[in-house]
């Protein structure tokens, strides 16, 4: 464990909690892409199947359970409890254009042709594009609530910090994973436009307009 990975995990946890609390407290999921949240639930489910087969550490197990629990709770709030506030018209990204290519790629490019490894690879590739429906929805509505921008900032920051974690691990532990690094770079690059707007306009905390 290193400082980049720990702060990355905490940033990720903060994003997940911020979103869940925002929806729960405001009793509304307006402006939130349910499709992205479903993709994140799939990412965690396919990545954390090893919860059943291997124990790495208490921290690792606890965080995985929290991530999966919050992801499904968020999906439940959006599609069940506060379904009336779900903005389906603007959440129109065709996720099949993400899932199918990602599924194909994970079968073609992976470290080991075993079910668990292919599912893990699928989750890595899927996570790198899972935010697209959310960014697409914001570009369609032209604005996002301030709390949603903080959610996106923490979410984007987490994988950027993981990039530094991989540099750290390569330097100190001597290994790296090209699949995780390439997907992590793609994932972080997708947030660049948002990061620029968040930083340049964030200070005035007015609704975020593209």
């Amino acid at each position: 464990m290193n400082v980049f990975r720990l702060t990355g995990d905490l940033s990720h946890l903060a994003a997940i909690i911020i979103l869940l609390l925002k929806i729960w407290k405001s009793r509304s999921c307006a402006g939130i892409s349910g499709k992205s949240q479903i993709l994140f639930a799939i990412v965690f489910t396919t990545r954390y199947l090893d919860l059943l087969t291997s124990f790495i550490s208490l921290y690792n197990t606890c965080m995985k359970v929290i991530y999966i629990g919050c992801a499904y709770a968020t999906v439940y709030l959006i599609y069940a409890k506060f379904r009336a506030t779900y903005d389906g018209n603007h959440d129109s990204f065709r996720v099949e254009f993400l899932v199918v290519p990602v599924g194909g790629l994970s079968v073609l490019i992976n470290h080991d042709f075993s079910p668990l490894e292919i599912l893990w690879t699928f989750s890595i590739y899927l996570e790198s594009v899972a935010i697209l429906p959310q960014l697409f929805m914001i570009s369609k509505t032209g604005e996002a609530e301030t709390i949603t921008t903080h959610y996106l900032f923490c979410l984007g920051l987490y994988r950027a910090l993981y990039l530094f974690n991989w540099i750290w691990r390569f330097y100190f532990e001597g290994f790296f994973d090209m699949i995780a690094i390439v997907a992590g770079v793609v994932q972080t690059v997708l947030y660049c436009d948002f990061f620029y707007l968040y930083v340049t306009k964030g200070w005035f905390s007015r609704p975020y307009r593209l």
Partner: peptide, 10 residues
Amino acid sequence: DTESPMKDEL
């Protein structure tokens, strides 16, 4: 092939 070395990460 062996599995990804980053399996200990979240």
